[in-house]
């Protein structure tokens, strides 16, 4: 949380104002960080889904589902901060740029994931089905990106290329802090979410026990 405050400070005050884009560029630090972390979130789902199918431990199912929820929330943040920045800079809220489309498709895939979970009552079945979808959805991402990339060329600024980074050192510092803050934020919420689900399970067990006694 402290880090978050620091990250806000760095993004809004510390980092120099971008020459052509002005203050709106400051959104970039959080936009990029959330984008980065949402991919981590979906990767966590992917990995947890595989582990679940191998071990069949309920814990991994909880991890996968919690991570998807966070990933979706972050995707929504990306898809709102992006247009706010894009409107003055590109002149349009939305373009059919590969990254935009891929993020949108991600959002669709994982919303379907949550809908699928909502439609199944039985626990193990829900875990199995969503694990399969978690794996397939993640494997699909690079192919979606490739095909949309060929379908329409990107106009995204590519600030970080192999080796050289086209950013002012202060900006880079701010980006790093924001990235760290958002990543920690993700793991913090993820663990809270997992704990919540475990507590729910516990409550369910207790209720069963009590009902049995009477």
């Amino acid at each position: 949380m402290v880090l978050f405050v620091l990250a806000f400070y760095m993004a809004f005050l510390f980092a120099p104002t971008e020459l052509t884009m002005g203050h709106v560029q400051r959104i970039f630090y959080f936009h990029v960080s959330f984008a980065w972390v949402s991919f981590i979130a979906f990767f966590v789902t992917f990995a947890a889904s595989i582990v679940y199918l191998k071990t069949r431990k309920r814990f991994w199912d909880i991890v996968a589902a919690s991570s998807v929820e966070l990933g979706i929330a972050f995707c929504c943040i990306i898809l709102t901060t992006g247009p706010i920045w894009a409107r003055p800079v590109w002149g349009a809220y939305w373009t059919w740029d590969p990254r935009l489309v891929t993020t949108l498709i991600l959002l669709f895939i994982y919303s379907a994931y949550l809908m699928l979970r909502g439609a199944i009552d039985e626990e193990t079945k829900r875990a199995k089905f969503s694990a399969v979808l978690g794996i397939i959805g993640f494997l699909d991402v690079p192919i979606v990106y490739r095909s949309v990339d060929w379908w329409s060329r990107t106009i995204h600024p590519n600030v970080i290329k192999k080796g050289n980074i086209a950013l002012h050192p202060d900006m880079l510092m701010s980006l790093r802090v924001a990235l760290l803050a958002v990543t920690l934020f993700y793991f913090f919420i993820l663990f809270r979410r997992i704990r919540l689900e475990e507590l729910r399970d516990e409550v369910k067990e207790l209720r069963k026990k009590i009902l049995k006694e009477y």
């Binding site: 669709f108 895939i109 379907a112 809908m115 699928l116 979808l133 959805g137 699909d140």
Partner: peptide, 12 residues
């Protein structure tokens, strides 16, 4: 649910 699952995956 089937189309909702299927179409995003089939984008490529």
């Amino acid at each position: 649910i089937l189309p909702l699952l299927l179409f995003p995956i089939e984008v490529p």
